[in-house]
């Protein structure tokens, strides 16, 4: 099953990854990182395709994609 990892400390919560995910596998999170930013979360058991669109659009290079 493809999956992504999110570097929560680098995430700025811009939500661009959420906006481009074709499967809705990323969601706005509820937890804050050390910088006080609510970072996004990967939905476990979501339908990630490993298309890497989220990683491509992430301005902060905090997503790694495994397939």
């Amino acid at each position: 099953m493809p999956r992504i990892t999110i570097d929560k400390e680098k995430c700025k919560g811009c939500l661009l990854c959420v906006s481009v995910c074709p499967k809705g596998a990323i969601k706005a999170g509820t937890k804050m990182n050390k910088r006080g930013i609510t970072f996004v979360e990967f939905k476990k058991g979501g339908n990630c395709l490993g298309c890497a669109m989220c990683a491509v659009i992430c301005p902060d290079c905090c997503i790694e994609v495994y397939k």
């Binding site: 490993g50 997503i63 994609v65 495994y66």
Partner: peptide, 8 residues
């Protein structure tokens, strides 16, 4: 499983 996208 292979990493297909990471920081350059």
């Amino acid at each position: 499983m292979k990493k297909i996208f990471s920081r350059p």
